[in-house]
Design a protein around this nucleic acid. Sequence first.
DNA 1: CGATAAAACTTTAAGCTTAAAATATATCGC
DNA 2: GCGATATATTTTAAGCTTAAAGTTTTATCG
Lengths: 170, 170
Amino acid sequence: MSAEPHALDSESRARGDHADHKAELRLWLRLLTCTTMIETEIRRRMRERFDITLPRFDLMAQLERVPDGMTLGELSRRMMVSNGNVTGLVDRLVAEGLLQRRQSDTDRRAHYVSLTEAGRRSFAAMAAEHEDWVADLFADLGPGEVASLMSLLGAAKRSVQRSVRNAVEP
Amino acid sequence: MSAEPHALDSESRARGDHADHKAELRLWLRLLTCTTMIETEIRRRMRERFDITLPRFDLMAQLERVPDGMTLGELSRRMMVSNGNVTGLVDRLVAEGLLQRRQSDTDRRAHYVSLTEAGRRSFAAMAAEHEDWVADLFADLGPGEVASLMSLLGAAKRSVQRSVRNAVEP
DNA sequence: CGATAAAACTTTAAGCTTAAAATATATCGC
DNA sequence: GCGATATATTTTAAGCTTAAAGTTTTATCG
C-alpha cells in the first residue's frame, strides 16, 4: 500500500550501513527523560496525597464524562495497555467501590465499566489537584512554547504512527 | 530558600480555585502518548528481533563506553529507577552472561557492574538497529523540527526539575 | 574513640505489565 | 443453519517496578 518513503537513502544503502542518526536518538532519550520525570513526580504526589496509584487514576480519567461507561476493550485501546492489564485494574477498582461493571445486553462477551458515584466524587477531587500539578510542572514554559510543543509533538506522533503502521502491516 | 515564583497567581488565589490549565494538561497527555507509542514499538521490536526486554537493553546502554563499569547506585540514578529494580535486572543479566559484577576495593558496600565481552558484542548489534528504528520513527520530522523539539523539551525538562525541587525540598 | 548518621545495596510485599494461551460469544459466507 | 473466523475477555507465567524495611559498611563529629 505505502511507497515506503522512509527507507535508507541511497548513500546509506550504497555504504551498506546506517547514516548518523544521533540527533533522533538524543531526541528520543530526552523525550523519555521528560516523561519519566513527570510520571515519577505525579505518581509520588498521587500516593502521598490520595493514596492511589497512577494506573488507577488514569483508568478513572478515561471513564470521566462517559456516564454510560465503556467496554474493557475500549479502555484497553485508549489507555494503550494490554487487555489483561485492564482486567486486573478494573477488578481492584471495583473492589474499592470506585467502579461498577455490568454485562452488555446485546453482546454477552462484552462488559461495560463506569464510575460509581463514589468514584466520580473521588476522581473530581483528584483531577483538580492533578491539573494544578501538571500546570506547575510546565510553569516555566510560556504559552507560545506550550503551543509549539503541542504542534511538534503532534507531528512526531503522526510520524511514529506511520512508522509503526509500516512495520506491522507489510 | 526559593521565592516560589510559580504559586497560584493572585486572581486564582482570590477565587480560591484554579485557573484553566487545560493546555498544559493536554501537553502532558500528548507527551505521554508519544512516549508510550515509541516505547511499545521499540519493546516489540527488541523482543521480536533480539528476544530481550527493554529494561535490560537500557541497562546495557548505560554501561556502554564505560569499560570500568559503574556502581548499582549510579545505574539506578541514571536510569531513574529504584535501587531494588537495578539489583534484579543486574542479577538476570549476570545470569545471562552479559554482565559481570565485582565488589569495590575501596568500599565494601559498593559493587561495580560492567559488560562482559559477550555483552559488548550483543549490545553493539542491538544498538545499531535500535538507532535505525528510532530514526525511522521520527523520519517525518525535518532537521529543524528535531532541533526545535530538543530545545523545547530541554526547557520543559528544566521546568519540571524546578517544580520537583520546589515540591520535595521545602 | 565511640555514638550516630549516612550511604550502598538487598530483600520483601504488593501491584503493574506484558505476551500468549484459553474461553466464550458473535459474525460471516455459503 | 453451519463451519470458519473474528472479537471480548480472562487466565497464566514471567518479568518489571516501586516503597519500605533491613543489613552491612563508611563517614561524621563531639
